[in-house]
Each structure stands twice: as structure tokens, then as C-alpha cells.
Simulated scan of single mutants.
Amino acid sequence: MFVPSNLHSVLSLRRVGDPDHDATPDPKHIEAKVFVAFHIIGGLGNLLMLITALVSRRVNRHVTWINFCVTWLIFAISYTLLFYAGRQFSEEEPSFPLCLTQAGLIYGAPVLGACSTLSLVIQIWLSLRRIMQKDVQGEKPHGRESSLLTILLVLLPYVAWFGTVLGALVVGLHDTSKVMRTNSSVYCVIWTGVPGRVSAGIVAVILATAIIFQGLIAALLYRSWGAYQKLRRMDKNTLSISMVVRMGCFLVLNIITVSQIVVFLAQKTVIANIWISLTPIAAVAVFATQRDILRVWTFRKSPEYY
């Protein structure tokens, strides 16, 4: 799920100068512990999916799907960088380089996840269109998209991510006093509105584009459902309808999450952090439950793909 990264209001919901900002932090760090635990679970799940797709001959996935797992793993690590550095619950403030690095990463993480999902949606649309066109022309579908296009789909998330992170780092270096860990000890932020608004705007555009391509996929399947079923019976390795449906479910979850974040902003509640930490878990729940992956994880020998 994609979430606007307006960190001074959405992620921590505490602002410098507000009465809540100087309140005594929770000595048990309950919010931070739940946040970190969910991200670790989601990160490990995405890592397990990635390893399964790379080492198992029974799981056939496009490189954009592989890249999807990599980006959500980076997403989870970005939000738990303080934990892995051993500074998550320390009473002493983390060093400025560490804090600035995490602040930059968490502004870029939603953009990275959004772009990798958009790339996967575009790849699904291109694959279905190629399959249907070949069938209409009476030819047997073969091959995949051009290597150049595949490279662009893989690199796009990292280009957008790098630009967003770099911009946030520049803002943090311009005013180092704004770079600090939140009172909830969840992560480091840059207490200005610029990086958050930029990240949120980019994510909104990417999400809208992904929805458009998902609509094109639905329209294509509606027009050519008979041809798709015939091709699926002929070749079990043809793009599964399960992948299309799961991709649609993942986008619906994104829309719901963004809507909830708007509600949280109005109500000034810290539960938004929990929604963010559930994002990598949602990716695992949607895509790790495909039959071929479950068969590998449960040591079942059937080579059937789903």
C-alpha cells in the first residue's frame, strides 16, 4: 500500500512547537516496538518470497515481480534503520548522519514501493496485450517484452527513489536543526513540510497511473476473455488471472490506506504509523499466497502453476 509521506503530520503526528511535541515519551516504546515488529515481519516475508522465486524452478516470475519484492524489502529496512543500528530505543539521540539517512530513506520509500508496483502493473498489461494480439493474428505467443523496456521498468523505481531521497537529504542538510527522532522513537524525520508534500504528490500521481493501467487490463480481459481462456488451457505458463486479480486487490488496499490516512490527519491519531508498518505485510499476504509459492513452502511436489 502506498501512503503519503507527509511526515510532520501523517507519520508522527507531532509537530515542533506543538504542546504534544514536548510531552514525555512513552518509556516502554510500545508504539515503536509494534511498528518495528510489523516491518521486520513484512521485510522477512518479502525476502522469503524473493528467495523462493530465485531458487525454485517451480516458481516462474517476471523480473518486475522480483524487483517488486526487492523494493518492499528496502521499504521495510528504511523504516527500521535505527533498530538495525541499535539506536531505536536508546535514550541518547542517534548520530546526525544516521538520523538524516533514515529521514531521507523514509521519504523515498513510499515512492519506491509505488513505482515498483506501477512497473508490475504495466508489465502485466503489456504481457496480456502481446498474448491477445498474437492470438488474434493466429500466431503462437512467444517471447517477452523487449529487453530495453524491461530494463526501464526495473530502473524506474530506483530513479524516482534516488531523486526523492536526494531532495530530502538536501533539505535536511540545509537546516540540520530540523533533523531529529520523533518522541515515539519510531524513526527520524525532517521537521519541514517540503519533503513530505513532494513525496505525497509523487505517490499520488503514480497511484493514479497504476489505477489507469489496471483499468486497461480489466478492459482487455473483458474483450478477450474467450481467447485468454483458450491460451491458458494451451499453456499453463501463460500469465495467470490470479496475478491480475491480486494486483487489483493490492491497488484497492492502497486506495483504502490513502483514504484512512486522510481521516487520521483530521483526527490527529498516531494509528497511522501502524498502517504504514502493515504495508510490507500486505504485499506478502497478497502475493505469497499464490498456489505455486505455497506448494514450495509446504514441500508439495506438484509442478502446477497458478
Rank of each mutant, 00 (worst) to 15 (best):
L294G: 09
Q214K: 00
L120Q: 07
G17N: 01
L48R: 10
L120K: 05
V111I: 01
G17R: 06
R61Y: 04
N46A: 07
P25Q: 01
L47V: 12
Y305R: 13
Y158A: 00
V36A: 07
I274F: 09
A208G: 05
V70Q: 01
I206D: 07
T192W: 06
V262A: 13
L251H: 05
A37T: 14
T64A: 12
S9C: 04
A53D: 08
G43F: 01
V154C: 04
G226W: 03
M1Q: 07
W297H: 03
A227I: 14
L220P: 04
Q229V: 11
I77G: 02
L148W: 02
L81H: 01
S90K: 07
R295I: 04
I190E: 03
T182G: 08
E145V: 14
L105G: 08
T192M: 09
I255L: 15
L155H: 00
L7I: 04
L11N: 10
P141F: 01
C188H: 10
S277Y: 03
L173C: 11
C115M: 14
F75E: 04
V179F: 06
W161Y: 14
G104Y: 03
G108S: 01
V205E: 06
T289P: 10
A219I: 10
D292Y: 07
S224W: 07
A32L: 04
H174Y: 14
L50P: 00
G248E: 04
I256T: 07
K28G: 01
S302R: 12
L153N: 08
Y84G: 08
V34E: 03
T289L: 11
L220E: 12
P280W: 05
M247W: 02
F68N: 04
D18S: 15
P4Q: 05
T279Q: 06
P195D: 06
L152H: 00
F38D: 06
E92W: 02
T52Y: 06
L98A: 00
T80V: 12
S119W: 02
C99R: 02
I106E: 00
G143K: 05
G193V: 08
P19E: 09
D20E: 04
N183Q: 13
D18E: 12
T101F: 07
S277D: 02
A282S: 14
H39F: 12
M247L: 15
A168W: 03
I30S: 06
L251W: 07
Q102F: 06
K28P: 00
R57D: 11
I30F: 10
L47S: 05
H39K: 02
Y222H: 15
L253K: 02
I241L: 15
Y79F: 15
L128A: 02
M247R: 05
S90C: 02
T176V: 11
A200M: 08
L166C: 11
L265V: 05
H29C: 11
F75K: 03
V262H: 11
V198Y: 05
I293M: 15
A282N: 00
A282L: 06
A109L: 06
V284E: 03
I261V: 14
F287W: 06
S224M: 07
D18T: 13
V159A: 09
L253S: 09
K33G: 00
L239H: 09
W225R: 10
T238P: 01
L120H: 09
W225G: 08
A283N: 10
F83N: 01
V170R: 14
R15F: 10
I77M: 13
V205M: 11
I271H: 01
E91M: 08
S242P: 01
N46E: 12
V245E: 03
V189E: 13
T117W: 07
